[in-house]
Amino acid sequence: MKKIFAILMTVSITYFASSQSKTFPIASTLTTIDGETINSNTFKHDGPIIIDFWATYCKPCIIKYNTLKDKYAEWQKRTGVKIISISIDPASRVESAKKFVEAFEWPYEMYFDLDSELISKLNNGSKVVPLTLIYDKDFNLVHKSTGASVLYEGSAKKGVKHLYSGKKEITDFTVDLSKYFEIIDQIISK
């Protein structure tokens, strides 16, 4: 009887442990948009997750978030994807970053990597943004990319030259997100 009980307990514990969401494997201190401190190893999710780094000085980052925000709710509902957005702006720029989030109504989970510790750990010491990391539900890295493919709104013509010359508004541009959609679809089809 003791042997059967021990087997049942082992099976129960194993099932319970395997049914829980995995957490992010790298520990780094971050700040929430409300000013609270958290650790990145508390991130968890039951589906694919995108961790995306940005800064207020990065126009392609802002364009990417604006392009994605209109598609995010439907994409999240269809695939279960979660986006964690992390600003690498220094403490002196936090209020400006918050204004971007509010003005553009970005729906993503938002944090600040004030000392750029996490981005450095995840990108071999580099602090280049935008940096996009796509993980499966077990936090296995599936895709890593820097940069964004900036386009004129509604066309296939590259728009980076005009974006930085200031001849157009930031809302006149879009980012090609097809690669991200494709990767998430591959993750959920496994």
Rank of each mutant, 00 (worst) to 15 (best):
71 K>C: 05
91 A>V: 14
81 V>R: 00
65 Y>E: 12
92 S>Y: 04
63 I>P: 08
82 K>Q: 12
95 E>N: 14
84 I>E: 15
96 S>R: 15
67 T>H: 11
73 A>C: 10
71 K>V: 08
96 S>P: 04
85 S>W: 02
81 V>Q: 00
73 A>Q: 14
76 Q>I: 02
93 R>V: 07
74 E>V: 00
79 T>L: 09
86 I>P: 02
92 S>V: 05
85 S>K: 05
85 S>Q: 09
93 R>M: 12
96 S>V: 10
66 N>K: 04
64 K>Q: 14
93 R>S: 11
91 A>I: 14
63 I>Y: 10
91 A>W: 06
96 S>D: 15
67 T>E: 15
66 N>E: 13
82 K>D: 06
82 K>E: 13
63 I>H: 09
86 I>M: 04
87 S>G: 10
78 R>Y: 01
70 D>N: 15
89 D>H: 00
85 S>H: 04
74 E>I: 01
79 T>W: 05
88 I>Y: 03
91 A>P: 03
70 D>L: 11
94 V>N: 00
92 S>A: 10
73 A>M: 10
71 K>F: 08
78 R>L: 05
64 K>T: 02
96 S>A: 15
70 D>Y: 12
91 A>Q: 13
78 R>S: 09
88 I>G: 00
73 A>W: 03
79 T>D: 07
73 A>D: 14
79 T>R: 11
82 K>A: 06
75 W>I: 00
88 I>V: 13
83 I>W: 06
66 N>H: 10
62 I>P: 03
66 N>S: 12
90 P>E: 12
62 I>M: 06
70 D>A: 15
79 T>S: 13
84 I>K: 05
94 V>K: 10
75 W>G: 03
83 I>P: 05
81 V>L: 08
76 Q>A: 09
78 R>N: 13
71 K>R: 12
86 I>G: 01
72 Y>E: 01
66 N>C: 05
90 P>Q: 08
73 A>H: 13
73 A>E: 15
63 I>L: 12
87 S>D: 02
96 S>T: 15
67 T>S: 15
64 K>S: 12
84 I>H: 07
91 A>T: 15
65 Y>T: 04
68 L>Q: 07
66 N>G: 11
63 I>A: 13
